[in-house]
Amino acid sequence: MTLQSLTRAWEPMSYGFLDASAKREIRRKMLKAIAVPGCQVPYASREVPMARGWGTGGLQISCTLINPRTRIKVIDQGADDSVNAASIRKFLARVSGAPTTNDALEADLIQSRHRVPEEVLREDQVLVLQVPNPEPLRPVQPNMSIARQMHADADYGRMWLQLYEQIVRSGRVMQGASYPSLVNGRFVMTPSPIPRWDVPKLHMARHLTILSAGREKRLHVVPPFTRVEPLVFDDVPYRVEDHGGLTCQRSGARGYFMNEIPQDDGSSIHEVSDSDLGVKTIRRREGEAVAIGATWYENGEMTS
C-alpha cells in the first residue's frame, strides 16, 4: 500500500483564489439572501489581494461563482477600461482561467462598480454589484442594533422623512444615487451607489443581481423577476434623469443614459454611461457587424 494508492491524483478542483470552505460559506449566504430578497445577510468576508473599499465584496462573490468556462466582464463606473476594472478582470481571469469580455451580451458574470449595463441582461447572466455601504438606514439611524430592529419591524418611516427633507429644502428629491428601494415589498435596500436612472433596471429584471459589501461583510440579493420599487410619496412620482436628447461626445450615441463631464469653461459634455455601448456604436458606424442588444432606456423612455 502506498500513499499514492490511498489518495486521488491532483486535479484543479478549486477556482477563484478563495478556498473551498470560504466559497461554500458565501454560496450558502447567497442562497439565503436569494430566499429573502433585499435582506442583508452577514458573511465572513475574507482577505483578498486588494484593499478594502476597492471592490473586495464583489470580488469574493465573483470568485465564488466563477469557473474556467465563465465569461467575465468587469465595469468600473460604466467603464471597462479603467485601472480598477482592468485589474479586477485580469485577476479573475488569472485565478480561474476564465475568458474575459467587454461585451455585456457575451458575459456570463458581470462584476460592476456602481453601474448596470445599458443593454438588457438575460436570465442566464449574473450581475455582481460592489457596495460600499449596504445599510440604507445608516443616515437616519447610526445605531446598527436599532437599525436591525427597524428592518425587522419594516419601520422605514424615516427613509421617507429623508425624502421629505430633500423636497422641503430643495423643492425636489435630491437623491441622485443609492436611491432607497423596497425589494419584494418587504426590505428597503440601498442599491449600491448606482445612479437613480439604474434603479428601474433592477425592477422585475430577468437576471440575478448580487450586491456585496466586503468591508461591511454583508450581501443582499435581488432575485430575477422581483419587484424593486424606489421609495416615493404617492403624490411625488419617481423620476429618472431625462437624457433622451443628449449625445455622447465620444461615440455619437444618442438616447441613452449619459455621464456628465464638467469642463473648465463651465460647460458640460456627456458620455454614454456604458463605455462598451459607446465602443459598439463607433464600431457599427465604421461598418463592423456589431450586435447591440435591446437597452433599458431608449430615446428618453424606459423600455423594460
Binding site: 419601520d155 421617507w160 422623512l161 422641503v168
Partner: peptide, 16 residues
C-alpha cells in the same frame, strides 16, 4: 415640520 411629519409617516401617511 419634518419632525411632525415623522410621526405621520410612522402611521403610514405617504402623501407629501
Amino acid at each position: 415640520s419634518g419632525n411632525v411629519a415623522e410621526r405621520l409617516l410612522v402611521a403610514g401617511e405617504r402623501r407629501f
